[in-house]
Computed example of a mutant assay.
Amino acid sequence: MMLPRLVDPAPGDSLSRADPLPSLRSRRRDGPGAGNDAAQPPPLHLLRYDAHRPADAGDARLPEVDGQGFAPRRLHAGRRVFVQGQAFDHLHSVHAGSFKTVIVLPDGREQVSQFCFTGDLMGLDGLGGGIHASTATALEDSVVFEVPVTSLCDAAVPSKPWHEVLYCHMSREIVREHAQMLLLGSMGAFARLATFLLELSDRMAVRGFSPLDFHLRMTRCDIGSYLGLSMETVSRMFSTLQQHGVIHVDRRHVVIRSPGQLRELRDRNSA
């Protein structure tokens, strides 16, 4: 079915508050290790995650420092991992759950800069200047492994896997920033939302979740901030895509019915 041409909403619409939505569980596909809730350091193949490349099949674990595994830290939804301007002393590897990172602009406005999931490494923005350039907040009850910078430096010298992990993540940060600039600077509103959903679908797939049936952990306000759109515009576009049979939305529950039409929308609605 040919998707009719969709006209981007008029800019400038906004609402005064976030749209809080109830949290729902993701549907995970069956696989080895399903149901094992024991806290273990995340596999290196997840840390090497690339949205454009399938994850490796290996199950190597994070290297240990002085015989001790990195300490897990459990956070409830809404708790902060680190705060913008805070001294940088740890990297944080996401073991379970999800996070958003937010940059506070000089005028006091907040901009969501990225969403992090299992296998992502948070806090790289502090490597250069010794302070965090953003604030990371849990979107749900989550677990991170805290990697002390001092131990990281000691471990990185003899450890080829650690070199690969750090280089991979730093490279991904650069690629992600470039993609975000492209998203905000040259794409129309519908193309932005389509790109966001397709990227999220890829990230779910590589982590063992269904790429077509998942739950959004972030609010529509968060999505709007990330995409440079108002919450009302995001809500209206979700409704429009549902009306055209591209997706089905029930609060935070999203089913992608036609990924091909989403890709078409992403490609043809670029500004």
Rank of each mutant, 00 (worst) to 15 (best):
M2G: 05
P4F: 05
V7L: 11
P9A: 11
R17A: 15
D19S: 10
D19L: 12
P22H: 11
S23K: 08
L24I: 08
S26W: 12
R27W: 13
A34D: 15
Q40R: 14
P42E: 14
L46F: 14
G69F: 03
A71K: 06
L75Y: 07
H76P: 00
A77P: 02
F82H: 08
G85F: 04
H90K: 04
L91F: 07
K100E: 09
L105Y: 02
E110G: 02
Q111V: 08
F115Q: 05
C116K: 09
T118M: 09
G119A: 12
L121E: 04
M122Q: 02
G128Q: 07
G128C: 00
T135P: 00
S142N: 06
V144C: 13
T150Q: 13
T150V: 13
D154S: 13
D154L: 12
K160G: 00
Y167T: 12
Y167E: 14
S171F: 11
L183A: 03
G188H: 02
A189K: 06
A189V: 00
F196M: 04
L200W: 06
L200Y: 07
D202W: 03
V206A: 09
S210G: 07
S210W: 05
L212E: 09
F214D: 00
D222K: 01
D222Q: 14
G228N: 09
S230L: 08
M231F: 00
M237N: 09
M237Q: 13
H248G: 11
D250K: 14
R251Y: 06
R252E: 15
H253V: 08
H253I: 05
H253F: 12
I256V: 15
I256E: 06
